[in-house]
Simulated assay, not measured.
Amino acid sequence: MQFNGLLQTFPSHVKLFITAFVVVLTVGYVTGLTFVSQTDSDSPNGIEENYLGNEEVEDAQVMKFEKGAREMLTIIHTHILSMSFIFFLLGSLVAMTSLPRKLKSFLMVEPFVSILLTFGGIWLLWMGYHWMKYIVMFSGILMTAVYFLGVLAILRDLVKKPNQ
């Protein structure tokens, strides 16, 4: 079966449906990024404080406490499962774009590596491997960049006519 450029060949009502899905999915993704920013987890030290607390910091503006094992398992479990579904659906649509095969493969597979690095890194950070905050930061940024590149590729192909 030929997947390359398949999005361009869909009827307009299917293209509209996929566009609506991608736009709403992106609103949800951006909302998640906004939450990360609100918890000051958009820096390596902020990531560390968010999971390990800052009780010993005397001049902390917001007091944060170390997360417990159950809370950590809940955070990691829900994020790995939900983000796997998000990137499976997005990757399925990327597979039908007209991007070059190697780029398409990267955009489809890399998010799963980043999910494991990000949330495995958060667990390892919580376990005491403080240097993992840099891996978490890098993999989170890469995952987000790949998300938006995939969305742009999908939307680009949805507005293109076949063989354009």
Rank of each mutant, 00 (worst) to 15 (best):
Y51T: 10
S114I: 04
K102E: 10
V24C: 10
L149F: 13
L93P: 06
D42Y: 02
K67T: 02
L89P: 00
G46E: 01
V159H: 02
W123A: 11
L103P: 00
V62R: 03
L25S: 14
Q2I: 13
T19K: 06
G128E: 03
I122Y: 04
H77A: 09
P100H: 10
G46D: 03
T34A: 15
R156Q: 13
A69S: 12
V62Y: 05
M63E: 09
S12A: 11
P11G: 08
T26C: 02
I154Q: 04
E55P: 01
L52N: 08
H130I: 14
G46Y: 04
L6V: 10
N4F: 09
L125M: 11
F35L: 15
S82D: 02
M143G: 14
T74M: 14
I75V: 04
G68N: 07
V109L: 05
I141Q: 07
E110S: 15
N163M: 09
L117K: 01
H13L: 14
D59C: 10
V94F: 05
G28C: 14
N45Q: 15
V146C: 04
M127I: 10
L103G: 12
L89T: 06
Q61W: 05
G53Q: 05
L142I: 15
N163R: 06
K67L: 07
L90Y: 00
V113S: 01
Q61S: 14
M96L: 15
M108R: 11
G150M: 08
F35H: 12
L125A: 05
V136M: 07
M143Y: 02
A60W: 01
K102N: 10
G128N: 05
T34V: 14
H77T: 13
L99N: 04
H130D: 15
V136L: 07
S98T: 00
V109I: 13
V113T: 06
F10P: 00
K160C: 09
G46K: 02
M1D: 13
M1Q: 12
V109Y: 01
P111I: 03
N4W: 08
Y147R: 07
F112N: 00
F85R: 04
K161L: 15
V22P: 07
F106E: 06
M83G: 01
P11T: 06
N163F: 12
M137G: 11
I76F: 08
L73N: 13
R101F: 14
R156Y: 08
E110I: 15
M143R: 10
Y129D: 12
W126K: 05
L89Q: 00
L103Q: 08
P44R: 08
Y29N: 10
T97W: 03
D157F: 02
D40P: 06
